[in-house]
Design a binder for these strands. Sequence first.
RNA 1: GCCCAGGUGGCGGAAUUGGUAGACGCGCACGACUCAAACUCGUGUUCCCCUGGAGUGCGGGUUCGAUUCCCGCCCUGGGCACCA
Length: 917
Amino acid sequence: MEYRPAELDAKWQARWKAEQPFAAAFPSEKPKFYVLDMFPYPSGAGLHVGHPLGYIASDILARYMRHRGYNVLHPMGYDAFGLPAEQYAIQTGQHPAITTETNIQRYREQLDRIGFSFDWSREVRTCQADYYGWTQWIFVQLFHSWFNVSTQKAEGIERLVAHLAKNGTKDLHAAHHGEPSCTAQEWANMDSKQREELLQHYRMAFRSDSVVNWCPALGTVLANDEVVDGRSERGGHPVVQKPMLQWSLRISAYAQKLLDGLDTLDWSDSIKETQRNWIGRSQGARVRFALPSLSESALEVFTTRPDTLFGVTFMVVAPEHPLLDVLTSQAQRNEVMAYREQASRRSERERQADTKTIGGAFTGAFATHPFTGAPIPLWTSDYVLMGYGTGAIMAVPAHDSRDHAFALHFGLPIVEVVAGGDVQVASHDAKEGTLIHSDFLNGLEVSDAIEQAIQSLASRNLGERRIQYRLRDAVFGRQRYWGEPIPIVYREGVPETLPLDQLPLVLPTVDAYLPTEDGEPPLARAQGWQSAEGLPLETTTMPGWAGSSWYFLRYMDPQNPARFADREKMDYWGQVDVYVGGSEHGTGHLLYARFWSHFLHDIGCIPMAEPFKKLINQGMIQGVSAFVHRLEGTQTFVSADAVNGRKTQKIHVDVSLVLGDDTLNTQEFKDWMPAFSDALFEPKEGPILLEREVEKMSKSKHNVINPDAICAEHGADALRLYEMFLGPLEQAKPWDTKGLSGVTGFLRKVTRLLSKRADAPADKGELKTLHKLIEKVEKDMSTLSFNTTVSAMMIAVNEWSSLSQLSTQTLKDFAVLLSPLAPHLAEEMWETLGEMHGISQAPFPVLKAEYLVEDNQQYPVQFNGKTRFFVHVPQGTPPAEVESLIRSHEKTEGYVEGKIIRKIIVVPGRIVNVVIG
RNA sequence: GCCCAGGUGGCGGAAUUGGUAGACGCGCACGACUCAAACUCGUGUUCCCCUGGAGUGCGGGUUCGAUUCCCGCCCUGGGCACCA
């Protein structure tokens, strides 16, 4: 048999398409295994070799688990709503659905070419109404829920309403924003509009006037993670801060549960840490400082260091703080207002870029220290943020570096309260030490002092223990067309959800994909954009992450018209066992999907709170860019070794124009772009040496390698093996097409093994090789270390290649071992060896330890830790015997050289070390 | 600035409850086949001042023995960033 990958790929891909051997069964007696890839956004550029890396790994695992007897769910779909298709629609007028469909076709062709074992009968697309109707359904559930802090669960809003009717907001422990409050009497007297206004402060999906990232060029609001350096992530347009009435989801209610849930997950430490940082839990206290000038009010602050209360020498409120206006004294008014004006003009970007400049103003007001009663001067400065804590802080310059810098700048006193360090020079931020100058806290360690301070505050009603989170509620409305319509209607301006029987609320046709003249979102252009009742519909759409927050559930029951997924099916499939995707989704998608799962679990819709048990973040495959030097201001291109210090520009050259020895194909370069058609070269007759550099793989860097091209030339199995062989899955690594010859050589060798087939029983060495390999493959599959699996297979094949014959059984067993990685060749071998049915469900060969036992044991013999020679002894020789063998060994004397043997260490089965000196 | 991950030949990388550093592959060199080239096969390939010595980012330490453990630094990648 000769190795002809193109024929094998076509033959077996057609067979799989016809026979559907990868369809997941339900119901099934088998144990389940759910392997999921992060589904792609189908971009117009198609896939490059970096994209399938994770898909190949998950496919190997899926195929392996089928051999191990599992019922495997391994689906694929498309995250199909998104900005690029909409941008294209704005430019060309082509409906985004058409663009998206075209791109999906292209993706599908590319994916099919690689031979994945996806169950395509379960494909989902987030942009299809039979899918997004359920996204809308979940939104409706969010709208009708609130978060009960006492039970730590989301509950139906009617329970909250009942509480309000009975007690008002008294004794209500509910996640909320703002300062909602009413009595039962007041609630009773409210009309429906007033009630809804109050309820909005509690709903899991709610509208609030929040400051958003408004991008005028795109006519839309962007999420924080879509804004990079004050510009839109896509397109790089300027972004400004603007208050706007926005739909949001109350993810902040789940901060603690999202934090606690991490402990149950098998994710990398780095991604868990990223999520912990994002949630940003701080433990401390709320402290109220009385404001004598406003007899009823107090200034509330949050601090993680209530132990340092006696070191407070001033306080700072954010320039946007609501009390700033009333607090400021007449004498200071001009200065404070000038500072506030100046601070408001600084954009978020400037404030971030410049954290060194210290600015602020004294308000002329004083607060009263809760313990000493001393007057504390009140300042304002933009280093205090309105969006975190209470927007006000107690400043302890001795033990906080920012407060310290502020105190130095404005000449404010610095009082040391935790011993150690010279606090006049630099703040002493350490969280351990002994309290001094602190009245009843003197002599206590920091941690004890924190406890004492909190208890004392609480007993005098001056404050209480408090946990603060950085995590903000997620803005959910987008001023865009190509997204899920939000199923809300307005009755006299009061939002209510569309009746469930009117879902899906289908995206309407519009005459243009732009905002209206008066700045309304594109949906406002739709004719008759109103409910059956004639009520106006919401015009914003959901963000990109809505559809991706629950798609893993729909795969379990993709066509169900009655519910998003059948409960029995969800009970069977349960958590995603292994989820593979890029770490760039660490704080976005992975946090939102966890939030939705926790919520759906709380309201009894799904069996598990955490959706993804084990997470693997595949690393990037980088491109190796090529650059040619061009003499500045000329069209002369110089070989990299002939620049000689002259001024040149480095220009990206498409990697297809690079010849084997890193020189430029000058003729094709001239044809590549019109601008280079009259290029001159130095030296004239070449070669023109290029510079190479590892960068991110992208079209603009002209270093993209297309998987189709690799498959066409070397076959899908070679691509699959090589991507895995490149290195550990999680690690970033550069692509080097030259290395492919290693794995194609391996596949050819495998094919040649078939000619050694003999019907004689397997020989001992042959079996030892086989079982060593089984052991290694099993071990690697549990850690997804497929790079070493490929090496191990190469070693086994090299060993077998030196034998004169191989048993049919060994060849069959090897075909199954190979099948997850190189399924096309494995199927062909399987068939050649006489099997009638496909290999995909063939049982995995059973490891037999007896074949691994060695007769002899080799000991490396070290002298003072340096290996000098080896001795061979029968397996299980007692250490004492090994030692005496070494003592009398002919080579020993030469290394001892007149010194004394102090000790001989024999590690059984491992090593011998002779200590001399 | 803080947090996380990592640093091993010319290159991708292998080996960590401490036990032969450099598996496997690329590249390179030489040889066989060939009129020749490609393919294929075989041999060699960490470095050096080569009977020996050095060596896993750098400097220390623990140990009979350290890529692996400890302390201090440097560098690269990623995340967060006036978060009280």
